[in-house]
């Protein structure tokens, strides 16, 4: 028997595929729809302190090998989200990862605190959204000090609970390995990486950036090698679990991340490239590969690219 389950910081996932934050996760219903399509866990779209409409359209564009987006962290605000998270917990059978963001370090604690009553299993700190940079100043994850402070503060809020804290990082930090160490030392239980990468597209006829926010983040197949490198680098320096993502479309892509050291894998843009049932497809492709190559468990493959 092939065992596709993974243990993510003590939480069991029936398969390693996780819905990435910001894709589909607007409501309990949309998360449920993704669960029905085979995801091993689902992440809610990042929750912030207050209601945000996000940027005007165009917010998401797709090209052959990449997507660019500047949705702008739209969400109805934590007070409303508390009810959405509760409804999601009631309706979902797979684990829910609760992604949060904030405009200030202190507000991360405020958002986390308000979510305590929903008993989240995992809180993911989105320190690396490229789409709100002008507004919030520098991205938190580009500053080791800020990153440490946010983790420490949220850890304080969740003290005495068994909530796991994951930190979402961007590969744009120059010393990524060092940042990973900072995150681990600050007490985070895991790392999610990568987020999207800064980009821009200009329409040469109207002579205007296409995204209403001008700047956006790239995701999808084009960023996969960056994601693989990031996970590989982190795996060398930290021992906390890593959710690897960036450009996963197939079971082979997922296995590449697992061999680089990922405990589980996130899928976002792949929903566009392969449809909402990508979670089922990737899981069965992982199984096919394992059968063919004689692996019995995901565990056996984790990080083996480091052995050679």
């Amino acid at each position: 028997m092939i065992d596709l389950s993974v243990n993510l910081a003590g939480i069991k996932l029936k398969n390693p595929t996780i819905l990435a934050s910001g894709i589909m996760g607007v409501s309990a219903s949309s998360l449920k729809f993704v669960e029905e399509n085979g995801a091993g866990a689902v992440t809610i779209k990042s929750i912030g302190p207050t209601d945000r409409t996000g940027h005007k359209n165009p917010t998401v564009l797709a090209f052959d090998n990449r997507m660019v987006n500047a949705v702008g962290l739209s969400n109805p605000g934590v007070d409303t989200e508390v009810h959405i998270v509760k409804e999601a917990h009631e309706r979902l059978n797979v684990p829910l990862i609760v992604s949060i963001f904030a405009d200030t370090i202190d507000n991360f604690a405020v958002v986390a605190d308000k979510l305590l009553e929903t008993h989240p299993k995992i809180i993911e700190l989105n320190l690396s959204c490229p789409n709100t940079d002008n507004e919030f100043g520098k991205m938190f994850a580009l500053d080791a000090d800020d990153t440490r402070k946010v983790i420490t503060l949220v850890k304080k809020v969740t003290q005495g609970t068994d909530i796991k804290i994951f930190t979402k990082l961007t590969p744009e930090e120059e010393d990524f390995a060092e940042l990973g160490k900072v995150v681990e030392d600050a007490g985070a239980d895991g790392i999610t990486t990568i987020n999207t990468i800064f980009s821009m597209n200009i329409d040469i006829y109207s002579r205007k950036p296409i995204l209403s926010n001008a700047y956006g983040g790239i995701s999808g197949p084009a960023i996969k090698p960056v994601g693989i490198e990031s996970v590989y680098t982190l795996y060398e320096t930290v021992s906390i679990p890593i959710i690897g993502m960036g450009g996963i479309l197939t079971g082979e892509d997922a296995i590449e991340y697992i061999m680089a050291g990922a405990t589980a894998v996130g899928i976002g843009s792949g929903v566009y490239y392969r449809g909402i049932d990508i979670f089922q497809k990737v899981t069965s492709e992982i199984e096919d590969f394992m059968k063919k190559e004689g692996y019995k468990s995901i565990e056996e493959m984790r990080g083996i690219a480091h052995n050679s």
Binding site: G22, V26, S29, S30, L31, T59, A62, G268
Partner: peptide, 15 residues
């Protein structure tokens, strides 16, 4: 997005 990614247009309870 218009192409099934962002989840903005999902309806209850089926998603």
């Amino acid at each position: 997005c218009g192409f099934g990614l962002c989840g903005q247009c999902c309806v209850d309870p089926v998603g």
